[in-house]
Write a protein that binds this DNA or RNA. Structure first.
Length: 155
DNA sequence: GCCAACGTTGGC
DNA sequence: GCCAACGTTGGC
């Protein structure tokens, strides 16, 4: 099992939106970056866990935990001309973008801000703490996962 | 709203 | 295949 961090702008989709979904489950659509796509397709599997991260927010940070409940499958928004994620170069014969389904496991009692992550011993190398880590899906090590979960229990 | 850091595109 | 121009992300 592997650990990840998924970013979402809460204005477009927040952890509360996920909490309000049927079965608290949703498809994570709209990933349009090849590196992130490759991780979704090749590495992110059912039962993997991920941090739900609010980007472009006040404050920005980790707000909860989800698990993967469905392996990668075609992202249908790429075929929909009315979607902002529409990709004319993608087709059902030539699948370019995929997504997984995630289910909410736990919403933290607060947020672990990026500021806090950055000053936490042991998280120096966490991708989200580093400058220019713009990837919307990032791997998290087991050790980093443990440290963040410990912080979350004190919120 | 600014801007640094990337990623993508397309002409050559 | 190079690289300049352009677009996007996302913290601040």
């Amino acid at each position: 099992m592997n650990y990840w961090l998924f970013k979402s702008e809460p204005e477009s989709y927040s952890i509360d939106d996920l909490a309000n979904e049927k079965k608290q489950t949703a498809c994570w659509d709209g990933i349009r970056n090849y590196q992130a796509r490759n991780m979704l397709r090749d590495d992110i599997k059912v039962a993997d866990k991920l941090f739900f991260y609010h980007s472009n927010a006040k404050p920005t940070g980790i707000v909860g935990v989800c698990k993967v409940v469905k392996n990668a499958y075609p992202d249908h928004t790429a075929f929909d001309p009315n979607s902002k994620y529409f990709d004319p170069k993608s087709s059902k014969e030539n699948i370019r973008w995929v997504m997984v389904d995630v289910q909410l496991v736990e919403k933290f009692n607060g947020i672990i801000s990026l500021q806090q992550l950055k000053v936490t011993i042991g998280l120096e190398d966490m991708m989200v703490c580093r400058r220019g880590a713009r990837l919307s899906i990032q791997p998290v090590t087991a050790e980093q996962w443990k440290i963040v979960m410990n912080i979350s229990k004190k919120l």
